[in-house]
Design a protein around this nucleic acid. Structure first.
Lengths: 231, 231
DNA sequence: TCAAAAGTGTTCACCGTACACCCATGG
DNA sequence: CCATGGGTGTACGGTGAACACTTTTGA
């Protein structure tokens, strides 16, 4: 007789992952929702999600599901929280682990999988999604706010080259407040983690605005030296 | 034929909850570990945990498990994160949701359930626990640090009446750094959320130190007025 | 030439931090 | 009377916030 206690008598449950996918464009911060084409709540909007398989981790499941919708890999993702209210999914007992993902809408190497009828929504104009997805979005947003102030994750939402104005717009839309232009630029410059390119972007002004790149190498080096990103 | 899509083909997995139980006494911040009396890793130390049942939420499971060990209810608990590495539990595929709990060691209305061979350990002297429990502890501690600076959760670890010195010792041991006595007291007093009692505690000095209570009512009122706890 | 966005520094108030001495009391 | 922990206030520097004008250039 084995001394190893097996877990045969314990309950097994369905585990889902749901992703709050953030994007950013000229209109501000957005989330990607998909339209359900099956009951219950056919036609309603929901986060992109899927079920955890036996042989994968939660992160792998979240990445798989994100890949299915966008074709993208190596996307910044972070676990937010787990949700387990008894009736949260009316079909069957399911617990769900929410993630948030940051993707750069502008890059053209991704196409939304048509089958999911995905659509970008401004936070303020998004329809109320199914189940407890609204709560997931709210908590993901809180996490994003906090994290964006202490880590350079905002750049995940921007194109490789961006203007100071774009960066400021991004932070304003994440934090949901207006920031002072000079103070913002002073702070950013004090961090010394951007490279100012020679190029200018002339799409929004006659004068043209300098383009910047995030200097990841320099950032990592400063981190090693004890530097703390703080906005 | 029903239009409702069922989830029959999806994998179900075992879901566990594991609790990082923090306590505080004269020696500092401690965690409660239990000694396994079955294989694998019989004799090793582990967090208190249990399996999620079909008809309960994760919070309920965490509370049930905590109650089994301590007899306590209504304990401050917070979800930390979920862990799902494939080999994390060698017996069977199990994902685990970690919680942290704050309990007041000094209160005498709880008795540790003998069956679990539980023992308090100072953080620096705790044995390395099984599986990924070390990582859970590290992340729970990070969360506790952050949360204790922005919420009055520290009081959960103290007796109802406590001295300023005790409060300072608590924060020093959560933050793992020495704090200046005058600055600490000034900060705490500026918050105006403590009541100074007439009573003194004479166990640590001849002069005696005033006892304080957390004024929860006043705190809630200040919160309603937009106050932010910040240490 | 003018409209529209880009770019640029300084001042001030407040907060966080450093710091040292007297008090009360039991033994 | 003295050793031990308790209790108290101020000064300084640095950081965060407020604030306005000049530059560029395409239309």
């Amino acid at each position: 007789m084995s001394l190893i206690r097996h877990y045969n008598s314990e309950d097994k449950v369905l585990v889902a992952v749901d992703s709050v996918i953030f994007g950013f464009d000229r209109e501000g911060l957005k989330i990607l929702l998909i339209k359900r084409d099956f009951e219950p709540q056919k036609g309603a909007w929901s986060l992109m999600g899927g079920f955890l398989k036996k042989n994968e981790t939660l992160d792998q499941a979240a990445n798989r599901v994100l890949h299915e919708l966008t074709g993208l890999d190596s996307i910044y993702m972070e676990q937010v929280s787990s949700y387990s209210e008894l009736g949260r999914d009316p079909v069957e007992r399911t617990i769900s682990v929410a993630f948030f993902a940051l993707i750069n809408i502008a890059q053209h190497d991704f196409k939304l999988n048509k089958a999911h009828h995905a659509q970008w929504f401004s936070l303020s104009q998004a329809p109320t999604p199914i189940f407890d997805h609204q709560q997931m979005i709210a908590e993901a947003l809180e996490r994003l706010k906090r994290k964006a102030l202490t880590n350079p994750i905002g750049f995940e939402l921007l194109p490789e080259k961006f203007t100071m104005r774009q960066l400021q717009d991004l932070y304003e839309s994440i934090l949901n407040e207006k920031l002072d232009k000079r103070n913002f630029i002073n702070k950013i410059n004090a961090l010394e983690i951007l490279i100012r390119l020679e190029e200018k972007d002339k799409t929004t002004s006659k004068k043209g605005a300098f383009l910047y790149k995030f200097d990841e190498e320099k950032y990592n080096q400063k981190i090693d030296e004890g530097f703390n990103f703080k906005l």
